[in-house]
């Protein structure tokens, strides 16, 4: 599965709105749209560390790194290439 697709699936599994009410593009801010809550960020960091073997440092914990499919994908790709 492509990285973007995996991220989208993870987000869809952690929505706080119904899936048919949650249409979002890859660049849409899912926090501002109210599709996920604060618990999502903690779960996302655990997911990234566990499934991608990436260590997320405190300096990486800016919500902006995790606010959209594109940003999460870019963050993981950047960490993987580092």
């Amino acid at each position: 599965m492509e990285l973007k697709e995996k991220i989208r699936k993870f987000i869809e599994g952690n929505l706080v709105v119904f899936e048919d009410e949650a249409e979002f593009g890859d660049s849409d801010n899912i926090f501002e749209m109210g599709f996920v809550n604060s618990l999502f960020a903690m779960k996302l960091v655990n997911y990234i560390e566990e499934d991608f073997g990436i260590e997320v440092a405190n300096d990486d914990l800016e919500i902006s790194n995790f606010s959209s499919v594109d940003r999460i994908t870019a963050f993981i790709a950047e960490k993987q290439s580092a």
Binding site: S38, L39, A41, M42, V45, N58, D59, L61, E62, I63
Partner: peptide, 17 residues
């Protein structure tokens, strides 16, 4: 603990979990 501004999102959520 953690980053400034991340007290609820990361620390409180982790602690309460």
């Amino acid at each position: 603990l953690g980053r400034v501004g991340g007290g609820f999102t990361y620390i409180v959520n982790t602690a309460l979990d």
